[in-house]
Design a protein around this nucleic acid. Sequence first.
RNA 1: GCCUCGGUAGCUCAGCUGGUAGAGCAAGGGACUGAAAAUCCCUGUGUCGGUGGUUCAAGUCCACUCUGAGGCA
Length: 326
Amino acid sequence: MQLIRNEMEKRIVCIVGPTACHKTECAILLAKRIDGEIVSADSVQVYRGMDIGSAKPSLEERQGIPHHLIDCLPIDTPEFSVSQFRSMAAEAISEIHAKNRTPILVGGSGLYINALTFPLEFAVPRNDMVRQIVSQEYDENPEKAFGRLRQNDPETAARLHVNDKKRVVRALEVFDCSGKPLSAFGNDFQNDAGSEPPFLPLLFGLHMERQRLYERINLRVDRMMKQGLLEEAKRIYAMPYDRNLPAMCAIGYRQLFAYLDGESSLESAVEKIKQESRRYAKRQLTWFRRDQRILWRDVTNFEDEKERLLDEFTEKTQAFMKGTCE
RNA sequence: GCCUCGGUAGCUCAGCUGGUAGAGCAAGGGACUGAAAAUCCCUGUGUCGGUGGUUCAAGUCCACUCUGAGGCA
């Protein structure tokens, strides 16, 4: 009995997909129908002050539905990462469960979704000192550094490319800190090794015709500019933040900072934002496409079909939460 | 009407004296384990404007033709 109860408490609904694909609206509509609360899985919406560029839903758009993991960090947070996201999101989800409501995890940061739905360990915390040493080692001779990885962690080396500095350095950092290869931590989200994931997800994926998606992205960027994205970027630009902070690299802001630096025209910065957003959407699709758990729905004609779509999502969610699905 | 220079990948263009075409950008696909809106890898067949001709062989030479830009009358 206790077992079943715990099982129930681990269930969450997820809505994933590329940027500008109606995830936000869909999640809010679903939340209203099933008495849910929304947990954002978005690596930029966590930052306060990055509202327009990260496409945060306004209070009005949220329609009274509680949103978690939005606006919970200042921009100059140097070390926010997946594992912190996971513990904060896990806490939010538990609170929602405790209220007997349904958590709806929605967002486009694929790794964040996986951190909550696959048994990833993140066992070895980041170590800046070691990372710096290894990074230097890599800069001096990438081939040699990669050779050392191949020797100590052939499995991870086989997965990575020499040029992928971030990952090669991180893998060596893990080895140097723990004495164990990264691959020995045995968490693999392609075919999990049998250990328990933090939560049991029902995954809905939204997609649409590529051309339509790109149109929507372009239009949304234009709308953001009208809503004052430049002013928002200026406000952040005026602060003495380190340009290498994760938040400062976000699409929309980075390109406008380049404009404010005098490196490009405003027009070309806006074009760049659109292009980078389109490429981002493509990468998101690549990420989510390989996830066999996702139930995909075409939302090319979202406006016409949303009632029917929501009916289906509602029904599937209710069955899933009761445990009669699967 | 005449002269000149163009028309080659989605775009901008290379292609020497004939041997069935290649760069940049765009685009597409993939990877992803404490930076993930980040980071990295892979991918170039296209009526060489059209028709005919010369040639063993034509993007390349010739003729005609369509079309764009500029110049001269």
